[in-house]
Design a protein around this nucleic acid. Structure first.
Length: 258
DNA sequence: TGCCAGGCTTCAC
DNA sequence: GTGAAGCATGGC
């Protein structure tokens, strides 16, 4: 068990921020977090303080990057223009959220499944997909499940998207290439996969590849921009951190009071 | 019950 | 290049 103090770190907010779908709440601020073939048990014990059930070495080698601990979120908050009231409020409300750096394939699969879907149902599908498995099924395992089984898990019309993407990923070995690409290159390459358009590609770029300039444009963001920014948002003041601001606005719109 | 969900593909035009 | 239809499913 290790005790760690981290500025801008709130497990519950991250859990509800819509970027991860397989965290298991254990009560009293504790979560079981599966990633990279491991499971981390971690508890929020105070503001910006957690206790994690792992060794310091594993924390440093695995979870440090997962929780994006090299990024100074205080610095990012400072980029918000004073006159941008909505974003300023969203950032205050969302303080503690970090952009996770999650496994690439799981993120691709999760956001293919997320399209035109709601979060409780996404979690249900992913839970069934991992049922009885020690970790998230790799592309080969998904391909082996076949269309019928995937449909049986509730993927609907997304089943062939996931199946084809799994097959192509196996062939291309893109799992090793995508992390080496720039944001623009990675986005373009991702969009060549069936079931991955600009929004899902941006989610993968942001939540798996660490490209914080990615700004996933979903129905919530479109509504926010329409209602609070006159239909067009200027993100140049916080260039390079667009994805973080997007996350704040998304979380605020979903959980904040009106 | 009907609407909607962290959209994408296809097909007009 | 832009716009609209169609898509499976179940949470609310």
């Amino acid at each position: 068990m290790i005790h760690i103090t981290i500025p801008n770190f709130n497990l519950e907010k991250i859990a509800q921020s819509g970027q991860c779908f397989r965290w298991e709440p254990m009560g009293d601020g504790a979560y079981r977090i599966p990633a990279f073939g491991r499971v981390l048990e971690i508890t929020q014990v105070a503001e910006d303080q957690v206790e994690a059930r792992c060794s310091p070495v594993v924390w440093r080698q695995v979870w440090h990057a997962y929780f994006d601990l090299d990024t100074d979120y205080g610095l990012i908050h400072g980029l918000i223009p004073k006159e941008d009231n909505y974003l300023a409020q969203a950032a205050v409300h969302s303080q503690g959220i970090r952009i996770l750096r999650q496994p690439l394939w799981e993120t691709m699969a999760s956001f293919i499944i997320s399209q035109n879907n709601n979060i409780p149902r996404i979690k249900g599908i992913l839970g069934r997909l991992c049922q009885g498995l020690p970790s998230f099924p790799d592309p080969e395992a998904i391909a082996a499940m076949g269309l019928h089984a995937l449909r049986g898990m509730g993927l609907g019309y997304r089943a062939p998207y996931l199946l084809e993407t799994a097959r192509i990923l196996e062939e291309t070995k893109d799992i090793f290439r995508l992390p080496l690409l720039s944001y623009g290159e990675a986005r373009k390459r991702l969009m060549a996969y069936p079931g991955i358009g600009c929004k899902v590609a941006d989610c993968v770029c942001l939540y798996a590849l660490g490209h914080k300039e990615a700004f996933p444009m979903d129905t919530w963001m479109k509504r926010i921009i329409s209602e609070h920014y006159g239909g067009k948002i200027d993100s140049t003041p916080y260039a390079g951190a667009e994805g973080v601001m997007q996350q704040y606005m998304f979380y605020y719109a979903r959980t904040g009071k009106t």
